[in-house]
């Protein structure tokens, strides 16, 4: 399974260097500090930018044919040099994820061949059952904490907004189906009024969403999901935090079971 965010990877490795360096040469920190605080360099950064864009494309968050922001915009936003962005785009091009067109309407675009569902299928096949269950446990824990707070804090008109979003689910367009369900899920957990928990839920949603597209294809699993989510919404509206948590656990169980079933069918 791909990671959705690896921005803190170099920081972690810098800490590891710090520890070993100190234990090995505690008496001479001065000389080591020079090496320690050296710039991590743009080489590692290009790879980070590449990984972040790659996971956005394979996750289906940037769609086939979509134009990427300009190199300068990306550079400014990531806080790296334009040459670093160019380097990462070159790598993405060689992976076949991005194409570059010249001319007046030129720029970098997500390759038409970049198929998030195919990537999700590969990712699911490569994920162990224990890892899937653990992902479910993490997701359920965060969601449950959110809806527990939401049940105490949300006002009925806010819950009604989530419900009306669910009302716009359209089975004839599975892409719309998935993004509407994702939006409704995030909108519901944001009613917890907790920014930390909502951010965590968004990371998990981005990780789960490509795999959930795989089970959306099956009519039974697809139709079960909004019904299960609606029962969480109902409990939040009723201010029943225990039921909101129980309904969340039923929802996550159903999804993880569907993923495991799908995995064993294709093996």
């Amino acid at each position: 399974m791909h990671s959705t965010d690896s921005a803190d990877a170099p920081r972690k490795s810098a800490v590891v260097v710090d520890d070993t360096a100190r234990s090995r040469d505690a008496s001479r920190p001065g000389r080591l500090q020079g090496a320690l605080f050296q710039s991590i360099g743009d080489a590692g950064r290009a790879e980070l930018v590449e990984r972040r864009l790659a996971s956005a494309i394979t996750g289906g968050h940037l769609r086939a044919g979509e134009r990427l922001p300009s190199e300068n915009d990306l550079a400014r936003s990531f806080g790296v040099a334009p040459t670093t962005v160019r380097e990462s785009l070159l790598a993405l091009r060689s992976q076949g994820l991005v194409v570059t067109r010249r001319g007046r309407n030129g720029g970098s675009f997500v390759a038409d061949s970049a198929d998030p569902v195919a990537h999700a299928r590969t990712a699911l096949a490569a994920t162990s059952r224990v890892a899937l269950r653990d992902l479910g446990a993490h997701y359920a824990a965060i969601t449950a904490a959110c809806v527990r707070l939401a049940a105490r804090r949300a006002v009925p008109s806010e819950v009604q907004q989530v419900r009306s979003r669910l009302g716009r689910l359209d089975e004839s367009d599975l892409e719309q189906w998935r993004s509407t369900l994702d939006d409704a899920q995030i909108e519901l957990v944001a009613l917890s009024q907790s920014a930390r928990l909502t951010r965590e839920q968004m990371r998990l949603q981005a990780e789960m969403s490509p795999m959930l597209r795989l089970i959306d294809v099956d009519e039974t699993s697809r139709r079960a999901q909004p019904v299960l989510l609606a029962s969480v919404v109902d409990a939040v509206e009723a201010g029943d935090d225990h039921e909101a948590v129980a309904a969340t656990e039923r929802m996550v169980d159903a999804v993880i079971n569907a993923l495991i079933d799908l995995q064993s069918q294709s093996r």
């Binding site: 959705t4 965010d5 921005a7 972040r52 864009l53 956005a56 996750g59 968050h61 940037l62 990427l68 922001p69 915009d73 990306l74 400014r76 936003s77 990531f78 951010r199 968004m202 990371r203 949603q205 981005a206």
Partner: peptide
Amino acid sequence: LLLAAQSVN
């Protein structure tokens, strides 16, 4: 703000 560059899409 560049949404495409954010860690969560």
